[in-house]
């Protein structure tokens, strides 16, 4: 990781990002706006799983917010990649960054599993049976997991050695 970070930091693209002092705060701001898209979409879907907003079906809610979740993730990946290229030594060898990537992989896996399950077992998700512990726990866990990704992300700045 150190060697990769060293090499990346020497590339012309990285040098360019480092030279433009306004670019990193700008990328971080767009990154935060994309976090808003993802976290709010996740919250709306999770609240529906908890039974808030029953005027919309589970499928309608997913159709409304899942595309925004993925769009937000694309923006996060693009701005995140640019931030890594700009300051590779700040992120790649950073324990907070590595934890963030692991948590992110888990969160994406859960999102895909939810989409697949909703398609295959639509009835299960649409039923109004109250107190379905599994789905309630899953909804709260996914929300906390996405929050943990954000916390680990902010912590990169405080674990960075360069």
């Amino acid at each position: 990781m150190q060697a990769l970070a060293q090499w990346l930091a020497g590339t012309p693209v990285s040098q360019g990002i480092q030279r433009e002092l306004w670019l990193i705060p700008l990328l971080q701001s767009v990154h935060i706006l994309a976090i808003a898209m993802v976290l709010s979409s996740v919250t709306m879907i999770d609240l529906r799983i908890l039974g808030v907003g029953r005027s919309q079906t589970m499928v309608q809610t997913a159709r409304r917010f899942v595309p925004w979740l993925w769009t937000g993730l694309v923006f996060l990946a693009a701005t995140g990649a640019a931030l890594i290229v700009g300051e590779p030594k700040r992120s790649l060898p950073n324990a907070a960054f590595q934890l963030k990537m692991a948590l992110l992989a888990l969160a994406i896996a859960l999102t895909l599993a939810f989409q697949l399950s909703l398609r295959r077992n639509t009835k299960f998700w649409e039923e109004k049976r109250s107190g379905r512990t599994v789905t309630v726990v899953l909804a709260i866990a996914t929300f906390l997991l996405w929050c943990a990704v954000a916390v680990a992300g902010r912590w990169i700045a405080y674990m960075a050695t360069t």
Partner: peptide, 15 residues
């Protein structure tokens, strides 16, 4: 970190 999560929800839900 809590501020970032909270403001993300403020802006996302307003949007």
């Amino acid at each position: 970190a809590a501020h970032v999560i909270a403001l993300a929800l403020v802006i996302g839900t307003i949007a």
